[in-house]
Each structure stands twice: as C-alpha cells, then as structure tokens.
Design a binder for these strands. Sequence first.
DNA 1: GCCCAATTAGA
DNA 2: CTAATTGGG
Length: 479
Amino acid sequence: MSDLILFWHRRDLRISDNTGLAAARERSAKLVGVFCLDPDILQRDDIAPARLTYMIGCLQALQKQYSQAGSQLLILHNNPVIGIPVLAEALKAKAVFWNWDVEPYSQTRDIAVIDSLKAQGIEFLHQNWDQLLHSPAEIFSGSKTPYTVYTPFWKNWITKPKATPIETLPNFAGLTEQEQEIAQQAGAIKLPSAQDLGFSWDEELIISPGELAAQKRLEIFTKSAINEYQEQRNFPAVDGTSQLSAALKFGVISIRTVWQATIEALENSRSEEVTASIRTWQQELAWREFYQHAMYHFPALSEGAYRDSFKNFPWRNNEAHFQAWCAGKTGYPIVDAAMRQLNESGWMHNRCRMIVASFLTKDLIINPQWGEKYFMQKLIDGDLSANNGGWQWSASSGIDPKPLRIFNPASQSQKFDVEGEYIRRWVSELRSVDSQYLVSGNILPLERRAVGYPAPIVDHKKQQALFKEIYQQQKVGVV
DNA sequence: GCCCAATTAGA
DNA sequence: CTAATTGGG
C-alpha cells in the first residue's frame, strides 16, 4: 500500500478552502483528485444542459488547478460504487476522502462506496461538511429536534461561530507515469465535453465556469450590489442578486469564503440600510442551509409534499396548460417573461421563480412536482434541496407553516417590474405594448392578436378562488 | 394603512 | 402564548 490518498470531488469543485481536501493533504502529500461522471445521474431526465455544461467547465478548471498543484484530477465515467473502489484498489491507495452531502441519493451511494472500500481494507473519511457553515448535526431546537420553521432556525444559526477560510495548501505529489497508466486501465478517462455526454448548450452561461469567475463575481457583488440587496433583489430587470447559485451548487466557491466576504462587507458598512441589506443576503445563505438540513432530516421531502393537507391534493394537471407554462405562453406577461428567461438563459431571477411557481400551483392547479422537475431540467443552479424547498414554499406544502401563498401576477409585475423592462427583455412580441397595459396584463385581445401574443389561458381571479375551494374541501377529508 | 391570511412550531 | 421572507384586497 502506498501513501496515496484519493480525494473524491462531488459538489466541491475547487482546491482552495476545501475542508475534506485539506484533511487529506494533512495526512499525505501524495494526493490525487477524482470525479465520477455517474451514468445513473446523467441518464436521469432532469439534467439541464446549461448545468451540465457549467459543471464540465468547472471540472476543466479543476484539472488545471490540480496540475498547477503538482497532481492530477482523474475522471471516471462509471458508477462510483464500482469506480471508486476499483481505482483505489488498482492504485493501492491507502485512503479515500470526500465531503459529505445531504441528498438521499448521495447518502445511499456513499454508504455503498464505504461498504465496498471497507471490504478492500481501504480507509475512508467523509465527516467533513464542506458545503455548509453548520452541519445538520449542529442546529437543533430546544426540544433537540430539527427546526421546521425558518425564523427560529436563523436565530439559532446566526449565533453559532462560523469557520473561517482554510489557508492555501502546500503542493501535492501526483501520480507517476506508470501509475497514470494503471489509473487509465482502472477506468480513468479524458474529460469528455458536454456534447460527448449528449448535452448541448450554445448560449452564454450566466456565470463562467471555475473558481476564478466565482471569486470575481463574489468580489463584485460584495463591493456593490450587496449594499442595496434588500431593495434591489426584488427587481428582475436589475442585477441586484449575487448570481452565485451555480457556483455554490457545485462548490466552485467555498461557503466560508463567501461568509467571510459578508463579514468584511458588514465591517465596511456605513449605514443602517447597508447593514440590513448585508444581513438580508446572509439570511439567504441561511435559507440555503435550512433547506439542506431539512432534506437531510426529512428525505421524504424529495418525494413530495411534507404537509398532510397536500399529500393527496387533487391537482388538475392539465397537460396543455403545463406546456404553455413551460413555453412561456400563458398570456400572463410576467410569467411568460420569466419562463423564457429560464428557457433561454438557464437561469431565472428568484422573484420570478416565486411568481411562476405560484402561477403553476395556484392558477393552473398543477402538481408542483411537475414544475420542480422542469426547473431541474433547465436551471444552471438546479439543486435538489434549494429547488424542492422553494417549490414547497410556493405550493404551501412544505415545512415552515404559512397561509396559502397566492401571488397575483399583475400586482407582482406592477410592484417589481414597474416599467415592464423585464417583460420587454424576454417577451419580444410585447416590446411595443404600452407599459401600463403590459404590466397590468390587461392587453386588449385585438392587440394580443396583432403582435402574436396568446390570450390568458386561465383567469387568475377564478382560478385562485377555485384553488381555495378545492383546498378547503379536500383538507376536511385529510385530518 | 388596515385587516385577513391559517397553521403551528418553539420558547 | 406569540410570532411568522419576500401578499392580497
């Protein structure tokens, strides 16, 4: 057995400030990275080409980082339950390290990998929670149960001391040429392109792949937009959000580094407003952790509604309505603009994610799981915990009990897209329509026909009343 | 600005 | 018993 340690990257596609990798480096200088392109994941029907393309770009950048550090990042195209132990065995690695994850699929998979490594007498280490500031084992309510309400979670979470970024690691020693050949025989391949894997995305990505781009984005955001975040984050036509979601999903940037940047921003704050804005963004990071903890403690969330009152909800599930929603042809300008932004850019502003989710569930009365899946098929940042949390929040079916949330598309655009700038940007046929009609959604049928824009597929007022009626009726049956 | 939302976790 | 992200009318 050699001194070699394999570090298995999953959603931590970077070298710097990586807890598991730092632990591995402490143990041995001979350190090689590995990433598995898992066919079980790639064959799923909810993979967004934009996300896959971004991920491949991040892997490319990571390979470069490894080579600069004096080592290699190996790529496997195999089920990790087989691929990782086979590679470890072939290279006579003494240990495999990785960072833990909350998703049910990951947990089951990791346990299978551990079993298989154990059988070969290879050590494993996975206790690091690199992607969270606080692990699900750290934050509990007074009754020692996981929080199911955000606000008390936040109050507790924010009082806990946060880890600071890890210092730069000393260089690694990689594989010899002979060992590289052995790795190839054990399945290591050249990094394929997204096209090689059957995904094509020709549009620009909202964020360039790799750690450098993410760091730059963080720097820009925490120098300017974060200071007005509380207000500006609500306007989809404005770049008022960090747009770091994809980088955080793949761990291209470390959450400790991100947190550190918010602390520095707070120190530089000169006004109550700015401080409140930075706090608000910190709360968004806490929401991310809240939903990841929830997924860890209540994995059934991934299969559908958390609340009983929604478990057997009689969704209408009209296929034609769903197709219109997907295509951005509902006849509701703000909804259509948002869906077209998603389809065309692989990203959607968060305000709009709430608007279209409310519209799908409360106006079209379609199962939120349909929308959740469609988002995963399109989003560059698509992440089970965050996406599921957001959808259950919108559907009122999740943890964190609240009144039914029914957004009025007209008042939402009147408040947050006052001049119709966002709508015009994404719904080209409406560009010449007067703002007043555009934003209220009260576009005359004649004008709709003239510009080739569809009539509303449902009536908001009727549908929200219908939804409430169905909800009240079926709730009685649940108890 | 005011009330209603609708349920319950959490102290 | 109170309080509850981003609302609606």
